[in-house]
Design a protein around this nucleic acid. Structure first.
Lengths: 145, 145
DNA sequence: ATAAATTAAATTGTGCACAATTTAATTTTG
DNA sequence: CAAAATTAAATTGTGCACAATTTAATTTAT
């Protein structure tokens, strides 16, 4: 068999597997907060930057309204965010944290440390991984637009 | 904010994004074969190793029957695989390629090259990425079992 | 000023991904 | 041998992810 189609030679498969594996490590930890990983990402954006439009959140997380609209509705049902149409421009929906959502930030402070623990990867390897991923991400975005 | 906090967020999110981005590059190419990326992975296993049980495929791709059963039914509907219960042990379902499935392998030969083209990443960077990812994947699997 | 174009979010539909449970077959044990 | 345990796949239910379309609001260009 040509080497071309061997699973072991693929780069994408280990990447896809590792991403799933890492998210799996987040699951039990985020579950204590009642969040999924994509929901946690949205909360990180709001904690860091405050109120944001749906599309502003989407631009940062590379997610579209088809993904975000139902996800945000779930966060709203948990009473950690509110969705409000902008009276200046009724097309825009602004997402804001509720008190409960702001308080959750405190409980979430420990998440990265706990992830770092369970991943058990040296800082050196993490930095190495980050460097190469960032480089490739930039290359893809610039090549593909 | 601790350094771990930043680092794990700064690694996990780019990892998750890059995996999605790379799969997005596969989409138009695999679409010509009528396959999704996970379906392509199943076909890679079958092309490389021939007939496999559902759980053997699952072990290699880290997917469970909840994911594979409907996926395999879709491949069966495309007439590129057949699903057959093992008469020796009726619990086991063996997946085999049809002629059409075998022929598809030829058309798939070009996929890795075309992906390499569109990703436009140096072989060195790809190897670098694969090396660090494989290392971390092994580390996670051994730590977490 | 209004018709056409654009924009933002929502909706619709398909396909993973995975936890939890169920079903049915096979093994192990008492 | 029969009950209990185990195993393999299927099923059920929830939640992304994304393409394609729709809806409604706003801009723009005539």
């Amino acid at each position: 068999m040509s080497e071309n189609l061997k699973l072991s030679n693929q780069v994408c498969f280990p990447l896809y597997s590792l991403a799933k594996e890492v998210i799996k490590q987040y699951r039990p930890i985020l579950n204590e907060l009642g969040l999924t990983y994509p929901q946690y990402l949205v909360m990180l954006v709001l904690w860091e930057e405050g109120s944001q439009n749906v599309s502003e959140i989407g631009n940062q997380l590379f997610l579209d309204s088809g993904t975000l609209t139902p996800l945000l509705k779930r966060l709203e049902q948990k009473n950690i965010i509110v969705r409000k149409r902008n009276p200046e421009d009724e097309r825009i929906v602004t997402i804001s944290l509720t008190e409960k959502g702001k308080i959750m930030k405190e409980k979430a402070q420990c998440v990265p440390d706990r992830i770092a623990e369970t991943l058990n990867i040296s800082t050196e390897d993490l930095l190495n991984l980050k460097t190469i991923i960032d480089k490739i991400n930039i290359q893809i975005k610039t090549t593909n637009n």
